[in-house]
Write a protein that binds this DNA or RNA. Structure first.
Lengths: 133, 133
DNA sequence: ATGAAATAGGACTACGCAAGTCGTATTTGC
DNA sequence: GCAAATACGACTTGCGTAGTCCTATTTCAT
């Protein structure tokens, strides 16, 4: 409960790694070996980060990945959002299909949870990759 | 990912409910019917809250539950901790068996995640049941 | 041209946890 | 003694996470 997924952890490690090398090109093989991350899983994470325009891919031999923005402009929230795809919410209220929640009709904790949700977003938004390097 | 469990939601609703009735005795049946919560599930949640000394149980006919502390002295974090049993952590680093994490040895994001973890705890600690009523 | 190194991406499996169900015991008031 | 309530363990089910496997595509170097 309340845990980040491994994919998000891998994504943060990868983005931090690239940033720490002054944006020199890095490959999945290099990162997966250095941090003992299953390369297939990391590959998919990198593809998501690419689609989300946080990093840029360079195909073919001698290819790899570089940052697509400055490290100061990538937040932990960006990484989470891009990798998870869906809106991150601590309850169904704040993600897809709120009305499908089994207690939607007379839920008494929507507003307080909303406040908490907002504060969590502040936390994740304020931490930038540049602080992790 | 990063979602509260249904048990925690049920626990918050129940504690809020009791608090809103000025600590008059409430039963599982009453709460489960009012908010459409499966009564067996709610019953176990109430037992956890009792063991955690957030509420007091009164067995037998005409029994039920009352708060064991003032609503100002029960935080959302208390409810989470008591219901989940284990330490809440956004990564394995901050809960049981940190050294079993597959990337423990040269993980580069322990410290930044630790900061985030700390800030999340602040958020959950600062919200009290008295603010939810 | 061809082969090697790299990304792109879909299909599938295994596992663990969350959620809920069921059955039974125990306590207590009327 | 019966009914209303809590206490609690065992079990089932479903879903999401994590990981594996396989193939296609792109690009560089020889």
């Amino acid at each position: 409960m309340l845990k980040l997924s491994k994919k998000v952890e891998y994504g943060l490690i990868a983005v931090r790694h690239i940033a720490s090398l002054n944006n020199q090109i890095s490959t999945v093989k290099e990162i997966s070996e250095k941090y003992t991350i299953p390369s297939d899983v990391l590959a998919k994470v990198m593809q998501r980060l690419t689609k989300g325009k946080l990093i840029s891919s360079h195909q073919g031999a001698m290819g790899g990945y570089t940052l697509a923005r400055r490290a100061e402009e990538i937040s932990v929230m960006d990484v989470i959002a891009v990798i998870e795809g869906t809106q991150v919410g601590i309850a169904q209220c704040f993600s897809e299909e709120p009305q499908n929640c089994s207690i939607f009709h007379n839920c008494t904790i929507k507003n307080p949870l909303g406040k908490i949700q907002h504060n969590l977003e502040l936390v994740f938004n304020s931490m930038k990759v540049s602080e992790i390097v």
